[in-house]
Design a binder for these strands. Structure first.
Lengths: 236, 236
DNA sequence: CGGTGCCTTGAGTGCGCTCAATTAAAGTGG
DNA sequence: CCACTTTAATTGAGCGCACTCAAGGCACCG
């Protein structure tokens, strides 16, 4: 619960504001969908623990992951003013989620200073990450994109209190990795191999260890500014 | 001024809230930068008239446009909680802009219901568009991406009260078009030619006319849901 | 111990890029 | 009003990055 407050950028004193909401906590199995594209979403969410993604499916069935959600992240707010969700929200690991009814979110947004500020910060961060991803997709090579996402998740998982800085649980299959970077699973595999051969990472199925952060960051053209993290990051 | 209120989704009664802010209106020449990546931004903005873009420059100098701003759009809010801007904001046409000091934005966000709601809607829209662009960049072909941006700008300019639905002023050079779609100017040129040859658009240097909207939307895999427009659109 | 998912690697193809040259359009100054 | 400059659009030729299709390996799980 304290980690949660931290993740939201709230002091423990403010936590009453969050726990004052008519939330309910629910646990989910890996690969379950919280919201499907086209559904009418009734809840917004806050990740207590676990790893989620939002994705869009195109007319021809192709899939693009558009964001990840880790501990402390708020998500699902686009649907506040939109009846049908224009994206999926999917749990990728075991996860515990605060579910907050849409109307309660709007009420808290109006009535609760700490929540309002937290939501604003969260949305600005989300927006900033989206735009960095846009840059990645448009202008970075496959190798740089793969390296960049590894860097981003290292920092975000670290800030979320997971893993050990340069050494963390890798939450994605190569298929999902490809869906997030706009690549095919096959090509993601080759890029990971290239990074391994270069000696900048060590990876096994569910783990990753960054053995040469400066070089990886260089390959990725990674700077953490866009993550809007206030500090307390072990890396760099 | 009424168009402005409309763009913000505010009734004319609420306009006092906006004009109560300590704004100043400034006019800008095409191609001027309002904010540069790395600058400390002191203002946020609201487009009264004109066409702007936000862009990011990578370590190697490559450029990616990450969003456009048309009449009624609020922009530059990422810098509220971030000292240095992580992107450029550039005026592409002659433009009139409300400039609102950062602190006044925060004050209005706390003290002014209409402004708070407008900002929330604006950010959700911005986020939603970013994610649609991510899908475009990751999963759509060059032809579809080009077609998709033509569709998006048609609808947005239409809602902003510009142009004539399917017939509007095209605000971008092919270089900029490429920067927005993650393509080179040369390839954008070829894709436009393909759309012209297909008979779905007519284009001259500064104008575009969509001669077959259904087929263009089909090629683009375009649906306007993600634009969060409440209605009043001539197209479709 | 067979099944099933995921990772890995190879071979060949094509989309979008690079480099380069030409044309068209829009200023700009004499 | 016309030479001159500059910026944008257009088109061609060739290349390479990432894709597709395909086969095999490895680990986990019934």
């Amino acid at each position: 619960m304290d980690k949660l407050a931290q993740g939201l950028g709230l002091g423990s004193a403010d936590m009453s504001t969050i726990s004052g909401l008519p939330y309910r906590i629910a646990d989910f199995e890996p690969m379950t969908y919280l919201v499907r594209q086209g559904d009418v979403a009734i809840h917004c969410g806050l990740v207590v623990s676990g790893f989620l993604c939002s994705s869009k499916i195109g007319g021809d069935g192709s899939r693009q992951i558009v964001s990840f959600h880790v501990n402390g992240d708020l998500f699902g707010f686009q649907s506040i003013f939109l009846d049908e969700s224009d994206h999926h929200i999917q749990v990728l690991s075991h996860a515990s989620i605060f579910l907050i009814p849409k109307q309660a979110v709007l009420d808290a947004f109006e009535g609760n200073y700490a929540f309002r500020q937290a939501l604003l910060r969260n949305m600005l961060k989300d927006l900033s990450i989206s735009k960095e991803w846009l840059f990645s997709m448009g202008r970075r090579s496959a190798l740089a994109r793969v390296a960049h996402l590894i860097c981003e998740l290292a920092v975000r998982q670290d800030v979320a209190g997971l893993g050990n800085g340069l050494d963390y649980d890798w939450p994605l299959t190569q298929e999902q990795f490809g869906d997030a970077t706009g690549l095919t699973a096959v090509h993601v595999n080759r890029m990971i191999k290239a990074l391994r051969d270069e000696g900048v990472i060590l990876s096994s199925k569910n783990k990753i260890k960054i053995s040469d952060w400066p070089r990886l960051a260089k390959i990725a053209d990674f700077t953490r500014g866009y993550l809007h993290m206030s500090g307390d990051v072990k890396i760099l």
